[in-house]
Design a protein around this nucleic acid. Structure first.
Lengths: 236, 236
DNA sequence: AAGTGGTCTAGACCACACC
DNA sequence: GTGTGGTCTAGACCACTTC
């Protein structure tokens, strides 16, 4: 296994490429153990830190699993990372060459439904800001938004003129967050959604539900519904 | 701005946390320039490589933008990375405590429709393997799959008994890929989908379309349709 | 206990983009 | 040119986990 002449690959990218090749061509099969950093550094004639960097990237992209003492193994089914933007809907619409307008349909302080409170990890007793808006492209409904906002988490939101700037845009620009979760699904348009989107109730809508928080403070829960025809694309 | 006493933060994680804090609390606002690596290394009393690592992670998670010579800036609207698995549907179903079964509905060699050929970047003249399957949990349809496969990209697929192992599972385990793109949407179930899923045509289905390739070789295009009720969750 | 990955350092050189 | 990030090195010590 040893005694191989150094192959003289430099830079962690070339090391990574070579490792990926060996994984891709099944020279190392799923489940197999990969040689240690030191051994690979010797083989490639580079510093261990360079191999380490390459392997860290492979682990990041889900191709291998690394554990101290146990070594690194090829993963059976890789988890790949995709970039998911939290979009400013205005820009999404303008990017399609349409004129943006939005309408604030509701703004009130209410106690949230149990399901929403649960997702935010807040007691139902506390009132939240409830906002419903419709985003339009060239005058036609593009998406409708149902949002519950924890005002304590976003100081200054009370002073914002939400007729001028949509809550979506204001939050993206002004509310930093450290984490969140996202849920995609298809549903039949509810009566309210159908009305907002000018479609018939029961027609399919693409639904994005998103919860975000800043450290341990929940910020907002939002449900966005897009009429069928919209699609969300990402690269992996 | 200088002359600050070293704050003695060690390890790139603590450096990252401190930088995140300054970004989150708007000490550095979106668009602002962040001090250079060397200056921060002096401030934190650590090596430049440590600051570099911290800032690379921040750039990776989309919080800052880095450019040589120009320095690093806080991004206005961060792109966050989420992990998207390409699931083995059998495991998805068994994970919900249901018994898995699948049915291969069609297997043929055909010239693909223009839209499919275009997505794969292949000429329509070339025949592809066309596969349609239904995945079932506890005997009820869970998802249906319409797949076009480039046989040249996956040697050995001809010998596989696709009644025994689903093409989805076989590919995840045996066809390495380097990239792909994914498209989520909602649609009204087509007649064929409705029949496969035992629902009425026109009802909402959640649709995942995925194209994968290995370097420049397209591997497969697949459309998965899930009846409403299914949702895909990810963390950001 | 020992082997593996994880991190840190100090210094060096390179690559790129802006001047 | 010149300043900034990007990478590399050699060596060291630490942390975790399995033996």
């Amino acid at each position: 296994m040893n005694g191989t002449a150094p192959v003289e690959i430099n830079s962690w990218e070339r090391v990574r490429a070579e490792l990926m090749r060996r994984i891709g061509e099944r020279i190392w099969k799923p489940g197999d153990r990969i040689p240690g950093e030191e051994e690979l550094a010797r083989e490639f004639g580079c510093a261990r830190a360079t191999v380490s960097r390459a392997m860290r990237e492979l682990a990041d992209s889900g191709l291998i699993e690394r554990r101290r003492r146990a070594g690194s193994r090829v993963r059976a089914s890789p988890d790949r990372k995709a970039v998911l933007r939290i979009p400013i809907i205005r820009l999404e619409i303008e990017g399609r060459g349409m004129a943006y307008r939005h309408r604030l349909v509701e703004k009130s302080e209410l106690r949230p439904p149990v399901a929403v409170a649960a997702r935010l990890g807040l007691p139902t007793a506390e009132t939240l800001l409830h906002l419903r808006s419709v985003h339009m492209g060239d005058g036609r409904p593009f998406a409708c938004e149902d949002r519950w906002l924890n005002p304590g988490a976003v100081p200054g939101v009370g002073q914002v003129d939400l007729e001028r700037i949509s809550i979506n845009e204001w939050l993206v620009l002004n509310a930093p967050f450290t984490g969140g979760d996202i849920r995609f699904s298809a549903a039949a348009a509810s009566g309210m959604e159908a009305e907002s989107l000018s479609i018939e109730a029961g027609l399919p809508v693409f639904v994005v539900e998103r919860t975000t928080w800043n450290d341990d403070t929940p910020i907002t829960w939002v449900r966005l519904a897009y009429p069928s025809g919209y699609s969300l694309t990402t690269r992996i």
